[in-house]
Write a protein that binds this DNA or RNA. Structure first.
Length: 270
DNA sequence: TGTCCATGATCAA
DNA sequence: TGATCCTGGACAT
């Protein structure tokens, strides 16, 4: 269940594990049989992430992976052994040092150069990529009457941003989630973008999403640390009904852009 | 054992 | 907007 920072980490892990050596490539489940066979015996030459999309280049062949909500890659040391495996393995990549199993992705396919271009074309700038141009996002945001909470989930505007980052960045900047894109001040957009850059880079480095500023951390506030499956310290994400760490107002939740949006009505008033 | 839900996204209507 | 796909974990029964 990944946002962009997970995919950027994944690109590094694939590069470290498989870069420079020929890989064996199979599809135990069979749904990626042809593609896996095409890759078999080739060398991973480039691994990169664009938003939530993972692109793995094998000597000119491009494998496109999108984990969706359920997909995950698991890495194991050593060549594949006889340990019992659970679940359905869409794609297995292996060499003599380690192997990686991909399960449940929304997409795992070979991408022709044209299709790759089309994919990149429909993605907006990614706060985690140095070659991203936030002006593209700004142009689209200021032209939209949709709410800023919807726009943050739109991969044509903010590639790689997902439900946690959108809720947390809006909270951190005190932005009303209902504010229409066309009414977002330029300055606010710049704050959103730079906060996304900072939060996502940190999440990518650490491997979990922490958004709480030092003065609001549990130790500083005399409250118990957050215990949640996703693991990070956050202000509002999945805290519906609990008191805001800053003002004490009960956190609210409502479905926006098909996902639960969490926000503090006190800190994020119009 | 079954149901619901999730850091996602597409497609039809 | 709703149905659907994908998998696993939490929780109810």
């Amino acid at each position: 269940m990944p946002e962009g920072h997970v995919i950027h980490r994944l690109a590094r892990v694939y590069a470290d594990a498989f870069g420079g050596l020929p890989s064996r490539s199979t599809s135990p489940q069979g749904r990626f049989a042809d593609g896996a066979a095409e890759i078999d015996g080739r060398v991973l030459t480039l691994a990169e992430a664009v938003g939530k999309h993972l692109l793995l280049e094998f000597e000119g062949r491009c494998v496109h992976v999108h984990l969706g909500m359920a997909g995950r890659s698991t890495f194991y040391a050593g060549p594949p052994d006889d340990r019992p495996l659970t679940g359905v393995i869409r794609w297995r990549l292996e060499n003599d040092r380690e192997w990686a199993d991909l399960r449940g992705p929304a997409a795992c396919e070979l991408l022709a150069p044209q299709a790759r271009e089309r994919l990149l074309h429909r993605l907006g700038p990614d706060p985690l990529r140095e070659d991203s141009d936030p002006e593209i996002a700004w142009t689209r945001v200021r032209a939209s009457r949709r709410s800023v909470a919807e726009l943050l989930m739109d991969q044509r505007m903010f590639a790689g941003v997902g439900n946690i980052f959108r809720a947390e960045v809006l909270f951190r900047l005190g932005v009303d989630p209902r504010l229409p894109g066309r009414d977002v001040p330029r300055e606010t957009f710049e704050e959103i973008w730079s906060d996304l850059e900072e939060l996502m880079a940190r999440a990518c480095a650490v491997g979990r999403i922490d958004t709480v500023r030092a003065e609001h951390l549990p130790e500083a506030m005399g409250r118990p640390p957050r215990v949640d499956r996703h693991g990070g310290e956050v202000y509002v994400y999945r805290r519906e009904g609990q008191p805001c760490h800053v003002c004490g107002t009960a956190i609210e939740a409502r479905v926006v852009a098909a996902r639960n949006l969490f926000w503090c009505p006190g800190c994020q008033a119009p």
